[in-house]
Simulated assay, not measured.
Amino acid sequence: MNIVVLYGGTRDGGNTELLTETVIGDLSVDKIFLKDYQMNHIVDQRHEEKGFDQVEDDYDQIVSKVMDADVLIFATPIYWYGMSSLMKTFVDRWSQTARDNNFPNF
């Protein structure tokens, strides 16, 4: 089983990371620290005929790993009652991936 953990915190060894490490214990997991990747914001082009413009960053590298996962764990601090901006940007980019021919099974 391929387990991927997406860490949305910005602080090394922060509370979210420590709690997640306790939960996963000795399981073999692929850890993705979103803070270590360049992920740009996008313009919402869901309703445009041509779809989204290409974005040059590390997002496709991350989503490729996520697509291979059997289990996906989202580990994010809660700021002002919502997920971290890193995690939010990652989730926002799903709109683009849903229309991307490189990820037909998204």
Rank of each mutant, 00 (worst) to 15 (best):
M1C: 13
M1D: 15
M1Q: 12
N2A: 11
V4H: 03
L6N: 05
Y7Q: 03
Y7N: 06
G8C: 00
G8E: 00
G9D: 02
G9E: 08
D12L: 11
G13N: 00
G14E: 04
N15E: 09
N15A: 12
N15C: 12
N15M: 12
T16M: 01
T16Y: 08
E17Y: 04
E17W: 00
L18C: 11
L19M: 04
L19N: 02
L19D: 02
T20H: 06
T20F: 03
E21D: 13
E21S: 07
T22A: 15
T22F: 05
G25M: 07
D26Q: 14
L27D: 14
L27S: 13
L27A: 12
S28R: 15
D30V: 02
D30N: 07
I32P: 07
I32T: 04
F33I: 07
F33W: 11
K35A: 08
D36I: 08
D36K: 04
Y37F: 14
Y37P: 05
Y37S: 01
H41N: 09
H41F: 13
V43G: 09
V43P: 05
V43C: 09
Q45W: 07
Q45N: 09
Q45R: 09
Q45S: 10
Q45H: 09
Q45K: 06
R46E: 15
H47R: 08
H47T: 06
H47E: 13
E48L: 15
E49R: 11
E49V: 15
K50E: 10
G51I: 09
G51A: 07
G51T: 07
F52D: 03
D53R: 08
V55R: 01
E56D: 03
E56G: 08
E56H: 10
D57R: 08
D58W: 04
Y59C: 04
D60T: 06
Q61S: 11
I62F: 08
I62A: 01
V63E: 05
V63H: 00
S64T: 09
S64F: 10
S64W: 13
K65G: 00
V66I: 11
D68S: 11
D70M: 04
D70S: 06
V71M: 06
V71I: 10
V71G: 01
L72S: 02
F74T: 08
T76H: 05
T76G: 10
P77F: 01
Y79M: 11
Y79Q: 02
Y81A: 02
G82P: 07
M83Q: 09
M83E: 02
S85H: 13
S85V: 10
S85F: 10
L86T: 05
L86G: 04
K88I: 10
K88T: 09
T89C: 15
D92P: 00
D92F: 14
D92A: 00
W94P: 05
W94Q: 12
S95V: 13
S95I: 06
S95A: 15
Q96M: 15
T97F: 07
R99F: 14
R99L: 14
D100Y: 02
N101F: 14
N102H: 14
F103T: 02
F103K: 04
P104T: 05
N105K: 15
F106Q: 06
